[in-house]
Design a binder for these strands. Structure first.
Length: 302
DNA sequence: AATTGGTACAACCGCCCAAAT
DNA sequence: CATTTGGGCGGTTGTACCAAT
């Protein structure tokens, strides 16, 4: 797209209702097309890039605005632990939310909270190796267990992926694809993640504080085959977005590792994790122990 | 009432990549 | 092939708003 700086005299700054109306009217009549030529045709003194951003982040009719739900926040944190600052990819898993909105939410809410809790928001790891839980127990002696769990999960992912059928998912017409060229299908990271961890965190009914590593002891079923749209090769499918160098297994392993560390520092004082329910078992301190009130399941007030 | 500091978020900027030429 | 162009991404900035002083 042509650099906006090339066109002097174009308006910058906040959009007026009139400009919004012009842009909306044009797109409604002509649909999405060439952003470079759109401003002139629509009678706007803006560069195409600015119009595109305004449409994507604000005017798109399928946008869901307002507070993030508890579920959405949990998803953001989980995905960020897994993917890092790949906002567009994270946004692809949050229907009707934009990458910009999620990025802002992260930077203004979650990041701050992590910092406050002594957790590095980039790595999701505690800033100190000697994090002590409110109960006084250190977490270091669990590191070996987590590492064991991680390795087991990796092996299981590779093994299971070889027998998985493929499926597809389609984004809404307005929703951005999770990869630019749409050459590969989106991995439903949340579901895959939950599935893997659900297997790992299956808990004993006799001792709710004791974590059992490995599959559900009764069934051994991880449900991976029913929820991950995998085409056969785990390395292909664990690629999210079109930048393969960033998305292949080694990095995801690292992210996985980071998430394990996060759990390592949190599960000790969190409520027992419900069997096969990772969302419910998401570290409670990241969800509840802050200065917000939870109005209901769908909204939180900061 | 005025000032100050913090917060939230819309918008911009610079860069990258893929497709087209 | 190299170059150009359009689209997209993540990081950063500007500013309106609000609460505390």
């Amino acid at each position: 797209m042509a650099d906006c700086r090339e066109k002097m005299g174009l308006k910058k700054g906040p959009w007026t209702p009139d400009e919004d109306q012009k842009l909306l009217a044009y797109i409604e009549e002509h649909g999405l097309g060439n952003w470079r030529t759109l401003p002139e045709k629509a009678g706007l003194q803006r560069c195409g890039k600015s119009c595109r951003l305004r449409w994507i982040n604000y005017l798109r009719p399928d946008l869901k605005r307002g507070k993030f739900s508890l579920q959405e926040e949990q998803t953001i944190i989980q995905l960020h632990a897994f993917l890092g600052n790949r906002w567009s990819t994270i946004a692809a898993h949050l229907p009707n939310r934009t990458d910009n909105e999620i990025k802002n939410y992260w930077n203004t809410h979650v990041k701050k909270r992590f910092t406050k809790m002594g957790i590095d928001p980039t790595t999701h790891k505690p800033k100190s190796n000697h994090v002590v839980s409110p109960t006084g127990r250190t977490t270091l002696n669990h590191m070996a267990q987590w590492e064991s769990a991680r390795l087991e999960a990796e092996a299981r992912l590779v093994k299971d992926s070889k027998n998985l059928p493929s499926s597809s998912s389609r984004p809404s017409p307005y929703q951005k694809s999770c990869n630019k060229g749409s050459k590969s299908q989106c991995l439903d990271v949340v579901k895959a993640w939950q599935s893997v961890v659900a297997g790992m965190f299956a808990t004993s009914t006799n001792n709710s504080n004791r974590i059992i590593f490995g599959p559900d002891q009764s069934s051994g079923n991880y449900e991976l085959d029913s929820i991950i749209p995998i085409g056969g090769n785990v390395e292909d499918e664990l690629m999210v977005g079109n930048d393969r160098s960033k998305c292949q297994v080694p990095e995801l392993n690292e992210r996985f590792d980071n998430y394990m560390s996060l759990h390592d520092t949190t599960h000790l004082w969190a409520a027992p994790i419900a069997e096969n329910d990772v969302v419910e078992g998401f570290p409670d301190f990241l969800v509840h122990d802050f200065d917000y009130q939870i109005d209901n399941e769908e909204s939180i007030t900061v």
